[in-house]
Design a protein around this nucleic acid. Sequence first.
RNA 1: GUCCCCGUCGUCUAGGGGUCCAGGACUACGGGUUUUCAUCUCGUCAACAGGGGUUCGAAUCCCCUCGGGGAUGCCA
Length: 358
Amino acid sequence: MAENRPFLDRCRDKPVGEQDKLAAEGKEFTVKFKVPENESITFDDRIKGTVTFNSSNIGGDFIIVRSDGGPVYNYIVIIDDTLMKVTHVIRGEDHLSNTPKQILIGRALGMNVPDYAHLPLILGQDKKKLSKRHGITSVDLYRQEGYLPEALMNYLGLLGWSTESGDEILSVDELVQQFDLAAVGKSAAVFDFVKLKWINANYLRRYSDSDATDMFIPYIKNAGFDISSIERRKLEEIVAAVRNSCEILSDITKLIGIFLNDVNEPDDETDHHLKEDYALDVIRAAHEIIGTLDESNVRQDLANMIKEKTQHKGKKLFHPMRGMLTGRLAGPDLDIAIPLIGYANIKQRIEYCFKRYC
RNA sequence: GUCCCCGUCGUCUAGGGGUCCAGGACUACGGGUUUUCAUCUCGUCAACAGGGGUUCGAAUCCCCUCGGGGAUGCCA
């Protein structure tokens, strides 16, 4: 365990001349602030209320100029704040303990200290201050994942604060209009990706199919899909079919393959499902029937003919069909998906499943 | 260690002495809609950290304990 007491400083009371001499000799040095003893430092924080420190226990003299000559930001910011005529300092609670040091510097310089508001911290799932090890912490990474700016701002605004009405989906304008520093809570909040995604999905659904398509395209390309040969109109239909299953833009990369690949390997869950007896019935029936159908009637007849042949309906009909045709158990409405996949691919996928499972 | 801040459902929160056997949202679970999934919709589960006070009355005020977080001689 390191020393808990303020470092014993031999130079604290050396006359100025002697310090200069040592410096001139080339000795490394830092400049420290001489903290007065037993002085009360109180300020009214806009969020935390009255906060009081005693100068004797803020850690002793602290360095304000590093040995390389650079100022220590943490403590001397108040000079910059004052020079810039900053009236309100709104920052994270992790700066609360630095505040008395800053105020001390301000006082020593005869400056007017600004008003402070210390926001509660945002925590990770482990309740520790949010940092890189909690995953995405830069706005750029949120963008890359496909979180919408308005959703992120909305979510962040709701951390430590809420509207009087209880409304939770708020545009930036509404946020600006309704936000009130006085209504901000004092306790830290855990960052919840699940709720962020829910909010994001809310905003995502507000866009038209056309706008949504524009937004999804970069994510689709980025995932390695070549969509250059697909007409815009069809692309929009594809997006319309899967957008409800997306919470963030990048989610589409898990679904788009349904339409763009020749065959989709069933994922584990689907694979397991397709081995059920009733699923095998469906695959066999589809295999028998598909040759008699074509592009014009596959959509309306495939399901009905399988139904007739197997006598399966509802969940036992559509679940296996979905698995067989898309490789997944969740996804777009089959009525919409089938024409978009196209007869040729449908046939191909049925044959693939027949070989694999029957 | 020391100082400072904080403590209502799993999570975000409302509530600031009676209207609170605590309200909303997310999640989870169940119902409805969808011949399937998602969407949508309805509903259910779930909390005042503990103990002392003050008071006719406390989630709300005070104290203690416990718990969590932050800061702490050269990161911003």
